[in-house]
């Protein structure tokens, strides 16, 4: 039961004394319903993760809903293009609070190898991401680890305060306020990886 462990003196009395936060968090973290946004090959690994072999029902997250209205965990699995970006943001907006986002794979984390005009360089430029999972694609174990890390995070939240304080300020994270930055790291390493790349010789001054 973890954080819900009752006080010793209440053990025999047949009731449970705990904090409301702990109770809510316990309920939330063990019933994460994922909304799989399978955009490319990561979607296949996601299916393996939900299937019987890796079986995320062990962690209470097996109820994959293909409607954002019934989900509270958005798993962005794969390459998000700018053409698809408004659809992804709409799906996120349609999910009821509280909601979390996992960026699965390098493409959704940073654009990955698609350092191009068509691909969003990390879904965190349009969505607030909670956990990033590296890998191309990540193994199902890695995504399960991300869910466990997210559960640990949810344990530390204070939902009662949020409920009593009323609706939050508008969350500006990932809502179009960040400016687009091309992935400069790729340009820096291009010379090491591809000596024939014209960008490499330009940096050497050749």
């Amino acid at each position: 039961m973890g954080s819900l462990k009752p006080a010793d003196e209440a053990m025999d009395a047949g009731f449970l004394a705990t904090r409301v936060d702990a109770l809510i968090n316990w309920g939330r973290k063990n019933s994460l319903w994922p909304m799989p946004l399978g955009l490319s090959c990561c979607g296949i690994e996601l299916m393996a993760m939900i299937g019987p072999k890796f079986d995320i029902s062990r962690f209470g997250a097996e109820a994959a809903r293909f409607s954002p209205r019934q989900a509270d965990l958005l798993i962005v699995a794969g390459t998000l293009t700018w053409k698809m970006a408004h659809a992804a943001r709409t799906i996120y907006d349609q999910m009821p609070e509280p909601k979390w986002v996992i960026a699965m794979g390098v493409c959704s984390s940073s654009g990955g190898m698609y350092d191009s005009y068509a691909v969003v360089q990390g879904v965190d430029s349009i969505l607030p991401v909670d956990v990033y999972v590296p890998g191309c694609p990540p193994r199902p174990d890695a995504v399960i680890d991300a869910i466990l890390k997210l559960q640990k995070r949810i344990e530390r939240e204070s939902p009662l305060k949020d409920i009593l304080s009323g609706p939050d300020e508008v969350d500006e994270r990932g809502s179009g306020q960040l400016t687009y930055q091309p992935n400069r790291a790729v340009e820096r390493t291009a010379g090491d990886l591809h000596p024939h790349d014209p960008r490499a010789s330009r940096e050497d001054g050749a």
Partner: peptide, 16 residues
């Protein structure tokens, strides 16, 4: 046409 595109996020920003 540049490799990184010209304002690749323009249509998303306008939609937003």
């Amino acid at each position: 046409f540049p490799h990184h595109g010209i304002e690749p996020d323009r249509l998303y920003r306008e939609w937003d």
